[in-house]
Simulated assay, not measured.
Amino acid sequence: MDAYPRLCIHLDRIRENAARVAERCRAHGIAVCAVTKGISADLNAARAMLEGGCDAFADSRIRNLIRLEEAFPAVDRFLLRIPMRSELEAVVRTASCSTVSMIEAVEALEAECAAQGKTHRALLMFDLGDRREGILEEEMEAFVRAFKRCPRVKLHGVGANFACFAGALPSAGALERLASARSFMEDGLGYAVPVCSGGETSSLKLLEEGTLPRDVNHLRVGEAILLGGDVAWQRAIPWLRQDTVELEAQVIEAREKPSRPEGPIGPDAFGRVQTFEDRGRRLRAILGIGRQDLPVEGLRPLDESVEVLGGSSDHTLLDVGGRPAVTRWGDVLRFGVDYGAMLSLSTSPYVARACFEDGREVRAVPRGGRSGSAPEACCPFGPP
C-alpha cells in the first residue's frame, strides 16, 4: 500500500563505494568496519558493503546487531554506542566487540560475562577533542587496573570519535596520541591490544593526504560508503559515487500561490519564526512527507529547478515555478539526501524502501528477515 514516499537504495553503487574504500584502506593495512546505522542496518545495503570488501559491521543499536547476526552469522558485529546497563545481557550475547568509557561498565560487563560463561572484547574510547564519549589520557592507569580486575573483558583496542558532536576534526597529532595510548595500555596490561581505531569517514581525508599515522589500523566508515560524502570536511569525496541513496516522493498538491504568507506571523508548528521573500505568485507543490520522517533541509532536488521551501510534520513545500515540465498532482519527484535525512528516512515506518541493481529494481530482503548465506569476511577483531 505504501508505495511512496520511498527510499531508493542503489546496491551496485554502494558496493562500488565499499570496494574503493576497502582497497585504499587495505593498501595501508587498515581494516574497514562498515557502519550500517545510517541506513538502519538495511540487510541489502549491509550485504553490498560486505561484498565490496568491508571486514565487519558496526552499528549503534543492539536491535540492528541482532538482525545482522541472524543474516550474517560469520561476520563480526561491533557495537558503536557505549551500552546502557539495561542492554548488557544482549551486548554480551550478540556483539563481537563493544565500546566502553566507564569503569562501571567494564565491571558490569565482567559480571554479565560470568553469568553467561563468556568472554567479551572491548574498545576503549578516548576523547581527543570532540567532547562526546571517551576517557581522558590521565585516566589510563585506572582503566589498566579495571581491566586487570576483569579478566573476562579483554581490551582489544583503543578508539576515538571525531566531528560528531563539537565538530573537532581528526588530525595526525590527535591520532598519534591514540597510538601512544594503545602502547601505554599494552605495557600496563601485559598483553597485545591489536586495534587502533582512528575514527570514521572524516579520517579518510588524512589517508588521502598521507598524514594518517601508520599505527592506525582500523576505521569505522558509513557515510563515505553509503553516500560518497564527508560532512565533517564539507565535501563530496571525489573518488566515490554520490548517487547511491535517493528519496522518491509524490505530489499531493500543486497550485500557484502568493509567496508570502498573509496575516500576523507567529512561530510555526516547531516553534520557529520564519521570514519569507516576496517573489510574487509562484507554482508550489506539496509532498506527502514531512518532519516526522526527516529534516527536510537534508533534501537535494535532483531537478535543479525545484527548491525546497520548508516543511511541517507531514508536508514538504516546494517552489516548482522554474520547472520546464508542469508539476501536477500525483507526480513523483526525486531527491538526493544527506546523512541526517537518510538516517531519519530509513528509520521512519512510513517510508518504503526499494533496492536497485544497475538501475533495475530488485527483490528486497524483508526488514526483519534473514538474507540467506553471507560471504566470508576477514574479521579484524579476531576469534572470540
Rank of each mutant, 00 (worst) to 15 (best):
E248F: 01
V332T: 03
T244L: 10
P267K: 13
R220T: 02
R26A: 09
F126T: 07
R255W: 07
R47Y: 01
G38Q: 14
V251G: 01
A374L: 09
R63C: 09
G117W: 03
M84Y: 14
M1K: 09
A236R: 14
L317R: 03
D42C: 07
R360A: 15
G382I: 02
R241A: 00
T327I: 13
H28D: 13
A341N: 00
D319G: 03
P301L: 12
R132Y: 09
Q242M: 11
P380M: 01
D127R: 05
G271C: 13
Q250L: 01
F126S: 03
A364Q: 08
F184N: 08
D338E: 04
G173N: 13
N17S: 13
S86H: 14
A374Y: 14
S98K: 04
I225P: 02
F126Q: 00
F147I: 05
A341I: 05
V153C: 13
R132F: 10
K148S: 09
S348V: 06
I252L: 02
D76I: 07
I82G: 02
D12W: 11
F162P: 00
R282Y: 10
D130P: 05
A168Y: 14
G271Q: 09
S202G: 10
G298L: 00
L7Q: 04
L294E: 06
V273Y: 12
L79K: 11
C150Y: 09
S346Q: 05
L343Y: 11
L178S: 14
A41M: 05
L80D: 07
S96D: 12
L175H: 00
V308I: 14
